[in-house]
């Protein structure tokens, strides 16, 4: 069996639900209490993929910053994938998203980037799509860490992309 280890960093503004997605994926847990993440917490989840690869996904749940370049740059070193998370219900967390994504693409040209709108439970999907279209936000997934919607799918997709 092929064993691989890949680093996946969750980035984005504070309070968007990075830690909630992290906990939902790692432990299948969710809490409504907001606790701002201090620095970075790292956990590993081992996934056995359909193609037989055993992937150790090392997830870095980083503290939130509106602007990635203002965050701690060392946290981004060696990332194979980034999950850029924004909060669908807070326009400020995605209105400048293109600049943030450009930053990642320029500094980590080989990394997989997934753009994720979280808190889908707090607004109708139709309204979410309309609002994101209004702000020209290109996203990969709309998730709810609260209900678990599309969380597994998101990380499964990342697993495939980082092992290809």
């Amino acid at each position: 069996m092929i064993k691989l280890s890949k680093k996946v960093a969750l980035v984005g503004s504070f309070g968007v639900g990075k830690t909630s997605l992290f906990r939902r994926f790692i432990d299948n847990e969710f809490s409504t209490d907001y606790k701002s993440t201090l620095g970075v917490q790292i956990q590993k989840k081992v996934i056995t993929m359909d193609n037989g690869i055993e992937l150790s996904m090392i997830l870095w749940d980083t503290e939130g910053h509106e602007n990635i370049s203002e965050g701690r740059s060392s946290y981004l070193i060696g990332s194979h994938a980034f999950v850029y998370v924004f909060d669908i219900t807070r326009i400020d967390t995605y209105k400048e998203i293109n600049t943030q994504i450009e930053f990642l693409k320029n500094h980590f040209p080989n990394a997989v980037i997934k753009i994720v709108g979280n808190k889908l439970d707090a607004v109708s999907k139709k309204k979410a799509i309309e609002t994101l279209k209004e702000y020209s936000v290109q996203y990969d997934y709309l998730t709810s860490a609260k209900t678990g919607d599309y969380v597994e799918e998101l990380f499964a997709d990342i697993a495939v992309d980082v092992t290809n």
Binding site: K7, L38, I42, S56, I58, G78
Partner: peptide, 27 residues
């Protein structure tokens, strides 16, 4: 701790100018 898997990347990132890497505020 899974954090230390970063060492593999640091070995690749090391250069004549930079061989020290600091990670603040790690749980």
């Amino acid at each position: 701790h899974p954090f230390f898997s970063i060492i593999e990347s640091l070995k690749e990132a090391v250069s004549a100018q930079e061989n020290e890497f600091t990670f603040p505020c790690v749980h």
